[in-house]
Amino acid sequence: MSTTVLRKDSATDGAPPSGGAPSRARTEPRRGRSRAGRVVGQVLLYTVLTALSAAILVPFAWMLVSSVKLDAEVFTVPIQWIPKSFHWENFADIWTEIPMLTYLGNSLFLSVVITFLQVLTGSFAAYGFAKVRFPGRDALFLAYIATIAVPWQAYMVPQYIIMQRIGLVDTHLSLILLQAFGAFGVFLMRQYYQSIPEELSEAARLDGLSEYGIWARIMLPLSKPALASLALLTFVFTWNDYMGPFIYLTSNDLWTVQLGLRSFVGVYDSRYAMIMTGSVLSVLPILVVFLLGQRHFVQGIATSGMK
């Protein structure tokens, strides 16, 4: 009996304990495979993102290359990515052939004024919808936001008739009044205001601060990312707007840069190289604005519920 017990004990002593080296040996290959899988997934993800980014940049690269070509070389098949000769004089000639500086100044004026007014009115209305309690607030907000779904072509003619009867056609003021208010800006700012604790507003009211003071002294300083996002989106939209200036502006000295490029489109032919040169010049301000405000833009979108 003692011999049997000793044999069992010796057999037990030689067996590996549960959870020992063999179990670690089994988990280590799994961890290695999972780590390799993550690396392969990241490589595939970055490859897809790189390919998509390159596809997005191809039209811009073609526009940039075409801006230093002759008109006959712009639409050659296949595309000639490296011109035989670079015509850098296109960037000097465009300033004398059309009043490019006037067009850029008009676009800048409209973009800055409309952006300022949209940020002001959008943030102020959003504060009322987010922090002020009054009967029918939510229903009014839904009705206002529902106007985003109405296409502009549905009320384009009534708007023009109104502006014509009050004598604002062929003035910058018509575009400013029509675009100074936007439901999208109200929605964007309201989503951000709702992320600010209500206790701040209640404490300010107890201290005797008015609703205007709460908006100006508490809400606006805390909502800089959302304000930057709204300003950036509005500026880009206004700068690139073509149909609005096309409908309301008839005088050449009031044209924006988008309308000014029409000067190179003739009845029988078009100066495509100059159009590309002007397009490159019109893109540069937008590029600068995006580079300067991209950090605030991403932060504002990420924290306003528009993920």
Rank of each mutant, 00 (worst) to 15 (best):
I56G: 13
I56A: 14
V58N: 08
F60A: 11
F60K: 06
W62H: 07
V65S: 14
S67A: 15
S67H: 03
S67W: 00
S67C: 08
V68T: 10
V68S: 05
L70V: 08
E73C: 09
V74A: 01
V74L: 06
V74Y: 02
V77H: 04
I79D: 04
I79G: 10
Q80G: 05
P83S: 13
K84M: 11
S85P: 10
F86T: 11
H87C: 06
E89Y: 01
A92L: 09
D93Y: 10
I94V: 10
W95R: 00
T96R: 15
I98H: 07
L101W: 12
T102E: 04
T102S: 07
Y103G: 02
Y103W: 08
L104P: 00
G105I: 15
N106Q: 04
N106L: 06
S107H: 08
L108H: 01
F109P: 06
L110D: 01
T115W: 02
T115V: 14
F116Y: 06
L117A: 07
Q118A: 11
L120V: 05
S123Y: 08
F124T: 13
G128R: 05
G128N: 11
A130M: 05
V132E: 01
P135L: 03
P135S: 13
G136T: 14
R137N: 00
A139P: 09
L140D: 08
L142M: 12
T147D: 06
T147Q: 15
A149N: 13
W152E: 15
Q153T: 15
A154L: 11
P158N: 02
M163L: 14
Q164Y: 14
R165A: 13
V169Q: 10
H172A: 05
L175N: 05
L177W: 08
L178Y: 02
Q179D: 08
A180E: 02
G182N: 15
G185H: 11
